[in-house]
Design a protein around this nucleic acid. Structure first.
Length: 482
DNA sequence: ACGTTCTGTCATCGT
DNA sequence: TCACGATGACAGAAC
């Protein structure tokens, strides 16, 4: 780029200050406003002094451009915004201001966008580092199988031997039971399923489907009044139907009472008896304090209702308790509970599911279980753990959704903020361009060549040197130097 | 009757 | 190898 024309260029001495602050421009010109030729044959402007100020009265004057952002190139007018930038000024011969402005905008905005993007990115990373759940960012697992493979597998599950087995055992749609031990247990427990006509459905949270007389057990359907013992004491965390049922039931310490008789004269003591409350020995560490406290000595119905109402009902509510007429609604046992009941599993489901593996194995060694019982116990343990895992999984999934929704809201707010800043920047830039245009017009109106003719904006451009001097450079020279 | 939601279950994978 | 947790997918029940 040629900063000065080889021919008749005109030098102006301009003490420029950063454009975003006060622009004090001193044009040193001869008193008669006629440029003087310097040693290089350039027109040198003397003495003329005037201050051009870009005031801060605009509505967007508070916008502070980052000091590291590149100088605003003014295209054909070629005036740097700040002397701190010694970058050679662009000297295009473009006279179309709009085009020139577009060019300048494209040079400026990326820097601003980069800055904004960097801040955004930093904020995001900073945020991610402290709050973002790593799980959320985990890549989605690759598909386990293709669609066709899945279809094939499903078909096999529905029509294969397992499916046939299921079809023979249940009335419901068969499921693909491909597990080894599970297949065995399924087969072994099929009699239970068959008897209970359960169709393999989960009845844990469902009203009783079977007739009041449970075919499987051969005893009347378990209700809250006739089921006195709890072998499945669940935690309070999932207090749904399941939790209510869990509260309804209560556990016995099978180790303290290993000889508890099973009412159906099975080979093993069982935890599914129809029992008398007087025989109950609640296990304190398995019961919530409130249930435990009010449990002893209460009539079974009262106890059941109290336990049924459980958590949300305070202690004082007991004083207003009125025993409802009629039988309380029957609380169904889950499929596994009924299976365990049918096979006379001698320990509670709670222990089957929640005991550590070592304790669980030790528990199994204390009893002589049949293969069917063993398989059922292991199935119950597997299903029970998986049920809790599924609940946790769904809880986490919901939490992730909530979290991501929050993240989305924040990102949208940041996007809107950046859009507003961009609009403000463009508005400010337009103001600056407008004022510079006026400034140019005023400067050129003051300039005269040797013959007293004014310089034309179309013919000359202003070029600033690193030391702040500004020269009038013919645009033809600028074009030639490109 | 149909769609949605909830829940249990199974299969599978990774640790 | 086994136990276990996580998770997608499926199915039934409930609404």
């Amino acid at each position: 780029m040629k900063r000065q024309g080889a021919g008749a260029s005109t030098a102006l001495y301009i003490a420029s200050s950063p454009l975003h602050s006060t622009m004090t421009t001193c044009f040193h010109m001869k008193p008669d406003n006629t440029p003087k030729r310097d040693l290089h044959g350039q027109h040198e402007l003397w003495v003329y002094t005037k201050e051009f100020e870009v005031s801060h009265e605009g509505p967007y004057e508070t916008i502070q451009y980052h000091p590291t952002e590149p100088p605003i190139s003014l295209g054909g007018y070629s005036m740097a915004q700040s002397h701190s930038h010694t970058q050679p000024l662009p000297c295009c011969g473009e006279t179309n201001r709009d085009v020139a402005y577009e060019g300048t905008y494209s040079e400026v905005m990326p820097a601003c966008q980069h800055q904004a993007t960097s801040e955004l990115t930093e904020a995001l990373y900073r945020h991610s580092g402290t709050q973002l759940n790593p799980r959320v960012l985990n890549p989605l697992p690759a598909p386990q199988m293709s669609f066709l493979e899945h279809m094939s597998l499903t078909s096999v599950g529905g029509e294969g031997p397992v499916g046939k087995d299921n079809a023979g055992l249940s009335q419901g749609p068969s499921r693909h039971m491909l597990g080894t031990d599970h297949g065995q247990s399924k087969h072994q427990s099929c009699t239970v399923d068959d008897l209970e006509s359960d169709s393999g459905l989960s009845l844990g949270s469902s009203p009783p489907l079977a007739s009041p007389d449970d075919v499987m057990t051969g005893v009347p359907a378990c209700s809250s009044t006739d089921v006195g013992l709890n072998y499945s004491h669940r935690g309070m965390e999932s207090m749904g139907e399941q939790g209510r049922r869990a509260n309804l039931l209560y556990s016995l310490d099978y180790q303290q009472h290993p000889t508890q008789s099973y009412p159906y004269s099975g080979p093993h003591p069982s935890y599914f008896p129809v029992t008398q409350p007087s025989q109950m020995q609640p296990q304190p560490h398995f019961l919530p304090p409130m249930s435990m406290k009010h449990q002893q000595g209460l009539p079974s119905a009262l106890n059941d209702l109290h336990l049924n109402s459980s958590v949300s009902i305070g202690r004082s509510s007991q004083a207003f308790y009125v025993k409802p007429r009629g039988n309380p609604p029957p609380v169904p046992l889950s499929r596994d509970e009924r299976r365990a009941h049918a096979l006379k599993i001698p320990f509670p489901l709670e222990k089957i599911i929640n005991l550590p593996v070592d304790d669980f194995n030790e528990l199994l060694t204390k009893y002589t279980l049949t293969d069917a019982q063993l398989a059922l116990v292991r199935d119950i343990r597997r299903r029970g753990k998986n049920k809790v895992a599924a609940q946790n999984c769904r809880k986490r999934k919901l939490e992730n959704i909530v979290y991501l929704e929050g993240e989305l809201g924040q990102l949208q707010a940041q996007r809107d903020h950046l859009a507003r800043e961009r609009m403000e920047f463009q508005h400010n830039l337009a103001i600056v361009k407008h004022r510079l245009t006026d400034l140019y017009a005023e400067v050129f109106s003051q300039l005269r060549d040797e013959d007293g003719h004014p310089y034309s904006v179309e013919d000359y451009s202003l070029q600033q040197t690193p030391d702040g001097n500004v020269y009038l450079v013919p645009r033809t020279d600028l074009l030639d130097g490109e």
